[in-house]
Design a binder for these strands. Structure first.
Lengths: 185, 185
DNA sequence: TCCTTTAGTATCGAGTCGATACTGTCTCAT
DNA sequence: ATGAGACAGTATCGACTCGATACTAAAGGA
């Protein structure tokens, strides 16, 4: 039982975050799914990608998505190009609900901290996250722009380009979460 | 959607911790309960105290405790002095199981960090925790020794004393979690 | 003594979650 | 082209969480 102070604090903070996430008639997992879909790029808005992101089985994700659909927060359509796939999109109602995201509380608490302390925290958490992911072979799920397949100014219309999907990227897309993201080595 | 980087990281870390906590046939909440009972002092090893610690309803706690009892990890006895109360204690099996605590992974990851980074993290998390608790009027659940009712050397046998419960405290007890704990102002 | 508070349990309904089994769809090597 | 296997999702089960509500029993006060 070595137990650094940070371990207990993170455990407790996790619990607080979890408890808060029972707002607006959603469950914690449903909020996480909703947030992911709001931030994921086109190719990542699928049940499979969400499965990888949440780290649960596809069965669970399937049910969570059904719940969100029942509540009218997301919409399912057949993916174009592959009729096995399902494309997920937030409905206007889903987008509106995000304004009540209980995680806003955490943001507010962070805002109340001195900026250097906040930056320190981010840096340390990032390092810890990397450690944890390495320990289990999980993916980082970072933003498109931090990916090694990301290049700039390849075509006229779009400012960026994805070398893996061979697709042009808008500025907005470059900030989104991508399942294929691999941090630059 | 202000969203500091730390918010996303904490959300994600919470999920990782949650996922890991499905080990050894226990559920995340059961692990949390088990850990609490291992660290709580005499007066705090009750369903009521655990309810406050977890921040869920007493009904939920009641069921979780039944599950732990069924698995032979805890033992319930009537509290002495108040026949409504239930006293909780880990069984040897429960104590043994704690060696497989999935949170050990987090500890290991922290151990891999440079010491100063780790200390920075603790400090920042502590500050954040305080902020969050103030925002909702939650309790800190700190160690007995950090309480304002804690005094030293009051009686011959025991080195410390609780002014609230008017009870002598051993060195070990002074390190445990107490529901009545109020941080010194 | 009655009345209220307090500690905990019982039960319900919605949801999570792993496990397992299943239906389509795509892909590729023959 | 076609048949085998990989792949994307869904269906169902059982154990559990969790809030809500209703309940029992003991304690304590006026």
């Amino acid at each position: 039982m070595s137990d650094f102070a940070a371990t207990a604090l993170l455990e407790r903070l996790s619990r607080v975050i979890h408890n808060d996430a029972h707002a607006s008639g959603l469950k914690p997992t449903q909020w996480e799914a909703l947030r992911f879909l709001a931030r994921a790029n086109r190719v990542s808005r699928s049940p499979g990608a969400l499965t990888g992101f949440l780290g649960v089985t596809k069965g669970t994700v399937s049910q969570t998505l059904q719940a969100l659909e029942r509540k009218g927060l997301i919409e399912k359509t057949t993916a174009d190009g592959d009729r096995r796939g399902v494309k997920l999109d937030l409905t206007p109602a889903g987008r509106t609900l995000l304004a009540d995201d209980p995680l806003t509380d955490l943001d507010a608490s962070l805002a109340a901290m001195p900026p250097e302390a906040r930056d320190q925290l981010s840096t340390s958490l990032e390092r810890l996250m990397t450690e944890m992911l390495a320990r289990r072979g999980g993916r980082a799920f970072g933003a498109c722009r931090t990916c090694r397949h990301f290049t700039r100014g390849h075509r006229e219309g779009a400012p960026y380009f994805c070398a893996l999907l061979r697709a042009p990227l808008s500025r907005e897309e470059s900030e989104q979460i991508c399942i294929e993201q691999e941090t630059t080595a």
